[in-house]
Computed example of a mutant assay.
Amino acid sequence: MKFSRIAAAVTTAALAPAVLIASPAFADGPGAPDAGHQPATTTPDQSVPDQAEEDRKTILAIIAHPMASEYMKEAGHKAIADGPKAMRKFIEVDQHKIRLDDYRIAISRLTADAGPGLKEGINKLLSSRHDIDMLRHFYEVTQYELRDDDNRIEISRLIGTGGPAVKEAGKKALKGTPADRTQFLKTGRFLAQASDDRVELSRIDESWDGPILSEAIGKLLNGSPTPAELRHFLEVTQYELRDQDNRVAIAKIIDGGGPELVKAGRAALAGTPADRTEFLKTGQHEARAKDQAAKDKAAKDKPAPGKDGQDQGNGSGTGTGAAATGNTATTAQGHTGAPLATTGASDNTTLIAGGAGTALVAGAGLLLAARMRRAGAQR
């Protein structure tokens, strides 16, 4: 009996909802829509929201790319803010136009540190018809091939002009990878050059006599100079110090020198470093030669001194009538044949002296005649 009641209750409970739903009274109950105005059953359309979200993610990936310019980023954020249609237009049209311009700008900027080969490749690409794929390939592949060609040429040039260390390191880089060549030109060449510069500075120190330059070289090499400091010393500082040593040397040379040497030395001191180098090389010797020539000419033109006790005239005398240096000696023959000296004052003096001698001879003759007459008378 109990089992029958339970079965009936279960059956009633199962049929009750179906009856109530089918009942006109329930269907037309208060608050129900009028017949013919029942809402249509719809399935929510998820396609538009899903597409918009996908476009938003796509745009975010585009503007996050390393090649994305500020203009690309700005346009992408604006499209997201403007909604689904703007995002779709950005993805399908705008991004490609902007990307084309971005590659053109990026490739143009490569010329700043490009070698001849890369510059030529850039100009050829941008001056011809091109699309985004050509630009992308040039930027991602071709530029590096052209750079390596330029690097090979530059390394070969350095090998031809460099010292032993540069030559060795450069040849090794040429046999290596493109990265090895880039690294050599970036840092390796300077380290190798520093080694060669140290050798060159030591050679200069050994061959230079000036104290100023030698002292500076010793101080530099005993320190910890950078490659740039060594190069600057060789290219600039050494010549400044050479000129200081040259100035000191010229000042010593002209101290107590002849007129021409002093003149040339002072002109060199007032001139350029090249003038001072030339003076020390040849100018000083030319000036010394001029001074010596002037001395020789002065000695040749100086009159020779006279010799005491020698007659400088046309005659020669051995008695007391010899004249002094520079005077003219004249021999006047008297009755006895003794010479009569003259001082060379004038010809009148000679005539007077001759007349006086004649008078003396005549007087002596008269005296002799008078004595002979007295003697005859006495006889």
Rank of each mutant, 00 (worst) to 15 (best):
S69A: 01
A40S: 13
I80V: 09
V48N: 02
K124C: 07
P116F: 05
L368V: 08
S4A: 12
I352G: 09
L366S: 01
D275Q: 01
D311G: 08
Q238T: 15
T187L: 07
E92N: 14
R198K: 14
G218Y: 07
Q143D: 10
F184M: 01
A267L: 10
R374N: 09
T358A: 15
L340D: 03
E120A: 15
Q292A: 12
T282V: 13
G188F: 00
I217G: 05
I155P: 01
F184A: 00
A169Q: 05
A68N: 06
L269W: 07
L230M: 11
G344S: 04
A27M: 10
A323E: 10
F233W: 08
F90R: 01
T358W: 08
L191H: 11
A329G: 12
E70A: 14
V10C: 11
V236C: 03
E235K: 11
T282H: 09
T58C: 01
I98K: 03
V166A: 01
A216G: 04
D113H: 11
R104E: 15
S207N: 13
E53G: 03
A68E: 05
P227H: 04
A40I: 14
D28F: 11
Q38V: 15
D347Y: 08
Y103E: 10
E286N: 03
R266V: 10
I253K: 06
